[in-house]
Nucleic acid binder design. Structure first.
Lengths: 334, 334
DNA sequence: CTGTTAGCGCTTTCAT
DNA sequence: ATGAAAGCGCTAACAG
């Protein structure tokens, strides 16, 4: 009986000698349809593998049950872990996930974001890579009625919701630990400019030093991991610890130390950030700051969905910010 | 002038004192609309950031311009690299990417796949994790008019298109290399049961031995990396090389060797598979088989889109299979 | 309790 | 060259 055409509501209606509205209501458990009709309809729908055309539904309801997620890349373990969590949560709530990456520059990033808006997703979770979001642009997206939530990175002067990891705390604890362990000449390999994560990790580093009356601060700005070996040279091995913006900077540091014959952790302690799987494979195994990817993923979805809900019912929603805490994973490099 | 409602065709039509049909045609470059009308319409559309409702379009055209991709997980570098390539190609062609993972078991996997069909994607690229696809199930999806292409793994008795990496060749070359280097007691750490990749890599291993008249074959089946250390023990270090199903098995092997005081590569050579980023961070650095993720990603998209096109125009399409070649990355472990 | 009807935003005959 | 009208599959007023 099942044809190789897609079954639609009217097929069921004809077969059951009912109107499409009754079938529709039965399928949606409308209270005024008697239970037996409902079950009868549902049975046939099931037998015929009927599934509603999401486009017809979406056209009417203005909801697409689709969330757009933009991350810098799929290969970075931190982001792919979060993406996994997000997908899990989304599926639970009956949403689909359209995902995309930032691309190679600010222009591509902006167009990727705009593509999500054009796809009429119900909401967006974005990790921006290249820029502060242009407020006008965010506004354009909001005008489409699409809540957008920023993940991992914070932007000043942007009205939006944020789900971030507590970079200040992560750095503060890491550096405090180094100090407790007796290190006193602590360098910081600072992350890319214009990233809030770089900013707060540096703040945490400086605060920890300050708190322990270590006034000598050397924060070495590295735009990418290639900068590390080049810039660290200038310090003539005159340090006993390095707190790195991320694990990849730390791997470079580890390699540099090996080349220089510097013994880690005896001569120099190293701490990374993000708990990349690689970090437990280096020798020595890297001490690193672990961010709660599950918190981050779960909260983004939770907050975004509630904004969507508010948007739908009240036409507006409140921005909020969630900051997830970190924990130091002490391994062999310090 | 722009309201915070979504602009629709009729808004443009009203403003320009034209009918929606004319506006629609103008936007779609219908030849019978004079150029100047077209540009006028396009200008306003652009100024007002008009973008067509994909759901209205999709409802009419039956095309959703969306491709569903299912992979085992986002964290595996091999798959996330392919996913990236796929997204790039898809964007170029104006498609969006809905992605999902296999989940924890065959039931979840099947429902994930079915969810893609329900989302009315135009086509599916899938890496199955748990099972041979049930032909009836594939058929159900085909009946929806959705071409489905299987990636990375091959299934006998399934009518479908495949894009796979040449596992036989990869293994054959790796093991041949080992033999050339003078190894003669070569073990194989075989992959999970029921995976074509396991099967062909084992075949390649055996063929290479056979070709060089090395008849002693020890293929040790390991369902997962935890099996490695347990099962390898039985061989009492009586081997001079190990060819591993994947890099993670190889890492276990490396660790085992370290624990046993076996020197790699002097006493035992090790080769992994997949060129995980980790593999160049171990010490010694792991020799591994590199699969062309770009070939794999590009071909899947190319083939799938042409099937979609054929499906649309002729109502049917031909299955085909693409096999991508591999290359051995010689590093320090052999 | 259920059917009729209109409409979501767009495309496309079919007229003119 | 352009407009009017119908229809894609679904839902929800509005009858009855």
């Amino acid at each position: 009986m099942k044809t190789n055409q897609r079954i639609k509501l009217s097929d069921l209606a004809t077969a059951l000698n009912l109107s499409t509205s009754t079938v529709s209501r039965a399928l949606n458990d409308h209270p005024r349809i008697p239970i037996e009709t409902r079950t009868k309809v549902k049975k046939l729908a099931n037998d015929w593998a009927y599934h509603p055309n999401p486009f017809a539904k979406g056209l009417f309801s203005k909801e697409t049950k689709t969330i757009g997620v933009m991350i810098p890349c799929f290969e970075d373990n931190y982001f792919s872990k979060i993406l996994g969590i997000i997908e899990d949560e989304l599926i639970k709530k009956g949403y689909k996930l359209i995902c995309t990456r930032s691309g190679k520059n600010a222009v591509e990033e902006q167009s990727a974001l705009w593509n999500l808006a054009k796809a009429h997703v119900d909401g967006i979770i974005a990790v921006l890579s290249y820029d502060q979001p242009c407020p006008a642009f965010i506004n354009d997206i909001n005008e489409e009625g699409i809540p957008i939530l920023f993940l991992d990175r914070m932007y000043e002067n942007v009205d939006a919701s944020f789900v971030i990891s507590d970079d200040f705390q992560g750095a503060f604890e890491a550096v405090s630990y180094l100090i407790q362990e007796g290190r006193s000449k602590i360098l910081h390999l600072e992350g890319p400019r214009d990233l809030s994560t770089s900013f707060y990790r540096k703040q945490g580093y400086m605060e920890a030093l300050k708190k322990h009356d270590l006034e000598i601060q050397h924060s070495i700005q590295c735009e990418n991991k290639e900068d590390v070996k080049i810039k660290i040279k200038a310090y003539n091995n005159d340090y006993d610890a390095v707190f790195c913006y991320n694990d990849f900077y730390a791997f470079e540091m580890l390699e540099y130390a090996k080349q220089q014959g510097i013994c880690i952790p005896n001569e120099v302690a190293v701490i990374g950030y993000a708990n990349d799987p690689l970090s437990s494979f280096t020798s020595p195994k890297l001490t690193t700051v672990d961010q709660s990817t599950s918190d981050l993923g779960e909260q983004s979805v939770k907050m975004l969905l509630s904004e969507i809900k508010a948007m739908k019912s009240k036409g507006s929603f409140e921005y909020s910010t969630f900051k997830s805490s970190t924990r130091l994973l002490v391994r062999e490099s310090c």
